[in-house]
Amino acid sequence: MRIAIVLAILFPAAVWAEQPLVLVSDPWCPVACAASDPRPGYVVEIAKAVFEPAGYRIDYQIVPFARAEAMTNSGDAAGFIGVLKLPKRQNWAFPEQAQAQSRVCFYTRADSRWLYAGATSLTNQRVGTIRGYSYGTEIDEVLRYAKVDQVSGLNGFKRGLAKLQAKRIDAVVEYELVAQYQQFASNASLRNAGCSQMADQLYLAFSPARSDSPQLARMLHDGVQKLRKTGELKKILQSYGINEP
């Protein structure tokens, strides 16, 4: 016991590195997929490629969005994959560059003729969203004009699609990157009815409750740059059908 205490005092970073690095997300392929999937998501694979050679063990967990945010705030999770920089996360540690970027779009059934053209176009439209999500400033603002139908729990987009096909809602909101992957993976018949003007920047961000979070954010940024130079980043992205930005 005394030896362990001395090691913890002399080598605090090494002691941290021996602990599992819990990363959480709700499922939204191709960024973060099922934890049991051989392809768990490209940001998950990037995190493993960066942190595991440094001695960390990635413990990737899929949980509902609200729980993932709570776990990150409390420090029960080291990081949350795929979040926006928002005022409520001002104390989180973000890497310099985003790990994903995508517009937010409205998707309808193939036979629909409705088009998203700003706030007034959403009047009387039943739009499916995921509880607790922020879709960026533009879309969050205009959704106030729609009849929003929220779902909770895991696989919110798939549940929204089921409501869409059953004609219980008129459209669903989702990141274009996710919807395109879903169409590719399941041959879903979706119609893009219009998107936000700007793409959102989404990050693997780290807990405000951990003293090493700024260090982890720097490690992620520097590690991604190394992966880019070696060509490993390109390989990871291409395995998910994504071109390196």
Score class of each variant (00 low, 15 high):
Ala77Tyr: 02
Gln101Asp: 10
Ala98Phe: 13
Val44Leu: 09
Phe106His: 07
Gln61Lys: 15
Phe106Asp: 08
Ala93His: 09
Ala98Ile: 02
Glu96Asp: 13
Ala77Lys: 04
Gly79Thr: 04
Phe94Met: 08
Tyr42Gln: 07
Lys88Arg: 14
Phe65Ile: 13
Lys48Cys: 01
Ser112His: 11
Tyr56Pro: 00
Ala110Leu: 13
Asp37Glu: 12
Tyr60Thr: 05
Trp28Tyr: 14
Arg103Lys: 15
Val50Cys: 00
Pro95Leu: 10
Val50Asp: 02
Ala78Glu: 13
Pro30Met: 08
Pro40Ile: 04
Gln61Gly: 02
Arg89Tyr: 15
Ala49Gln: 04
Val31Ile: 14
Phe94Ser: 08
Ile58Glu: 00
Arg67His: 11
Ala78Lys: 10
Gln61Asn: 09
Cys105Leu: 03
Val31Met: 13
Cys105Pro: 03
Pro64Gln: 12
Val44Gln: 10
Tyr60Asp: 01
Leu84Lys: 04
Asp111Ala: 13
Arg103Asn: 07
Cys29Met: 12
Gly41Arg: 06
Pro53Lys: 06
Asn73Trp: 05
Thr72Gly: 03
Arg109Tyr: 07
Arg109Asp: 14
Arg103Tyr: 01
Cys33Ala: 09
Phe106Tyr: 13
Ala49Arg: 04
Trp92Gly: 03
Tyr42Thr: 07
Lys88Ala: 10
Trp92Asn: 01
Phe80Lys: 06
Asp111Glu: 15
Pro87Lys: 03
Ile81Lys: 07
Ala70His: 07
Phe65Met: 09
Arg39Tyr: 07
Arg39Pro: 00
Val50Ser: 04
Gly75Cys: 09
Cys29Val: 10
Ile81Ser: 06
Phe106Met: 10
Pro95Asp: 09
Asn91Lys: 13
Asp37Thr: 02
Arg113Val: 11
Glu45Met: 12
Arg39Asp: 09
Ala78Val: 09
Val50Asn: 01
Asn73Gln: 14
Ala78Gly: 06
Gln90Glu: 15
Phe51Ser: 06
Ala100Met: 13
Gly75Ser: 09
Val104Asp: 02
Met71Ile: 02
Lys48Ser: 12
